[in-house]
Structure formats: C-alpha cells, structure tokens
C-alpha cells in the first residue's frame, strides 16, 4: 500500500522569482515611470539643497529691480513685483509645497491605515460606523473640505497639512479596508487564526505588510493631490503666508500683474504642473509594477 515515489522526488526548484534587481529592471522598461521618478528626485533634491542653489534670498525685496523680465542680467527667470528673484523663490517654494504634500499624505495614512484595517478585518459595527462616516465625507469634493477646514483652523502651514490630510482620509481608509477584507480571506490569514495567533499580531504581521504596495501607490497619487490642494489654499490666501514663498501664493500675488508681466505667474504654474505630473507618472508606474496582471 505504498504509492511509488521517485528516488529523490521533487527537485529543488531554481530561484526564478524576481529579486530586487528584477523589480528595477521591470520598472526601467516603463519610460514614463522613469521620467516621473527622475522628476520627483529632482524636486526633492531642489527642496533639500535650496540654500545652496538659490543665489538670492527668497524674501528680501530689492525695490530697484522690480518686475525684471526673464533672462535679464543676474535674474534668469526675472524678478517679481517686489524685486525678489523669481528662480530663488521657486527653489524655496518647493520646500513648503513638498512639505505639505508629503506630510498631509503621511498624516492621512497614519490615521487611515489602522481604521481601514480594523473595519475590513472585523467588519460588523466598527465597519458600519467607519463606512458611513467616510461616505458622508466623500460626498463633499476633496478641495471643498480642505478649504473649509483651512478656513476654520486659520491659515498656517500646520493647519493646511491637517486640512489636506483629513480631506484625504476617506480614500485611504477605503483602500486599507478593501485590502484588509481581501487579505482576511487568504489562506495564510485563516491559517494564523486556526493556529491561535492573536488578532493584534495578525493585523500587524500579516495584514499590514501585505498591503504596503497598494498603499504606496495610493500615497504617490495623493501627494500630487495634496500639492495641488496646497496651491489652491495658498492661492486663496488660506495657505502658506507671504513673505514665505510657496508656489500657490506666488500664483496668487502674480495675478495682479498677469497682463503685463505674465512670467511671474507662468513659472510657478509650470513648477506645480511638472511636479504633480512627475508624482502621477511615478504612481502609475508603481501601480503597474505591483499589479500581477501587468507583468
């Protein structure tokens, strides 16, 4: 009553699954994603190295040099209505812009992930309550919530980070919840339950690590959304306050001079456009990378 076994059955299978280099190779095959990554890296470097890159202070006015055109001597991108160097202001403006984008998204993730995991894993009343609240918040447009909260809290950097973070919560909660629901049905989670692993351990060791890739994708989409949001808030005067430069408040102060000196509006606009484009391209690339059906 034995079933024949080949001697030394089951050859050891070679390690064919993609390693870390494999990821990079597949990522490299998507030019838009690579361009996006390059753009993101450049913006981050500019923000970090701003004091080295900028030749002028972004806040000190030179009233003899008001509204110089681009390519004028000493000011490649010209100067603004108070004679401040446009390029230096753009460089320093990247700091607050990135700060808002990254911190708002981080805040949203830190709050949303535990709520999403708990509601997706336990379902029941927790889920009901969390979902109805997100439904209510989702019924309002993202920017309307951010503007409303920023108006209530008053304009400051911290407040717009909180406002944009809160406005992003529902989307992130839903993504974490959907992942938790899918993972809960996976055999490895069921196996952990059968073995008697505590819920807390299941949530931290099995659910959370396995939802990192979709969350990373979500982050790369919500950072540009937050950047756009912060530009809007600054434009409305609810964001970063002058004289500290942000791309949004540069746009806002430029609108008075739009007819005669359009460049002081065009340059921050281009900066916002390229930065959000880079993050979006990177996000698309990451999503494709993590999506098994796209391999």
């Amino acid at each position: 009553m034995t079933i024949a076994t080949l001697p030394g059955a089951e050859p050891t299978i070679a390690l064919t699954q993609p390693s870390r280099q494999g990821w990079w190779r597949r990522f490299r095959r998507r030019p838009p994603a690579v361009i996006g990554l390059a753009g993101v890296v450049i913006v981050v470097l500019v923000a970090l190295l701003a004091p080295l890159l900028a030749h002028y202070s972004p806040t000190v006015s030179q009233f003899g040099q008001v509204l110089r055109a681009p390519l004028s001597p000493g000011h490649i991108l010209g100067t603004d209505e108070l004679g401040r160097d446009e390029l230096s202001r753009l460089i320093y403006g990247s700091q607050s812009t990135l700060e808002v984008g990254v911190l708002a998204t981080l805040l949203a993730m830190v709050v949303a992930i535990p709520i999403g995991i708990a509601s997706g894993y336990y379902r029941g009343p927790i889920d009901m309550v969390a979902m109805r609240i997100t439904d209510v918040v989702l019924a309002f447009p993202f920017l309307l919530i951010a503007v409303g909260l920023a108006a209530i809290f008053g304009p400051s950097l911290q407040n717009i980070i909180v406002a944009l973070g809160v406005a992003q919560l529902p989307g992130s909660i839903r993504i974490a919840r959907a992942e938790a629901m899918a993972l809960r049905e996976q055999d490895f989670v069921q196996a952990a339950i059968v073995t008697g692993v505590r819920d807390r351990v299941i949530l931290f060791r099995h659910l959370f690590p396995n939802m990192l890739s979709p969350l990373l994708v979500q982050a790369s989409v919500s950072i540009p959304a937050a950047i756009l949001g912060s530009a809007l808030l600054s434009y409305l005067g609810l964001g970063v306050q002058p004289p500290t430069p942000s791309w949004g408040n540069m746009l806002a102060s430029a609108q008075t001079y739009l007819y005669n000196d359009p460049w002081i509006a065009i340059f921050p606009g281009i900066a916002i456009f390229l930065t959000t484009l880079s993050f979006n391209l990177l996000g698309d690339g990451l999503r494709d990378l993590f999506d098994p059906s796209m391999r």
Partner: peptide, 26 residues
C-alpha cells in the same frame, strides 16, 4: 490545519522559519 493551496496558505512576506515559528510564538 493544512490547507489546499500551498501558494496562498503561506504569507509571502515571511521567511520559512518565521512561518513555522508562528504557532510557537502565538
């Protein structure tokens, strides 16, 4: 319990020793 599908019954982000040690830790 031993599960049917050996591909979904092991956490892809844990090493074999972590997987086998999990019941002991629990």
């Amino acid at each position: 319990m031993v599960f049917q599908d050996p591909y979904s019954s092991l956490d892809p982000r844990m090493t074999v020793s972590q997987i086998v040690a999990e019941p002991l830790r629990a």
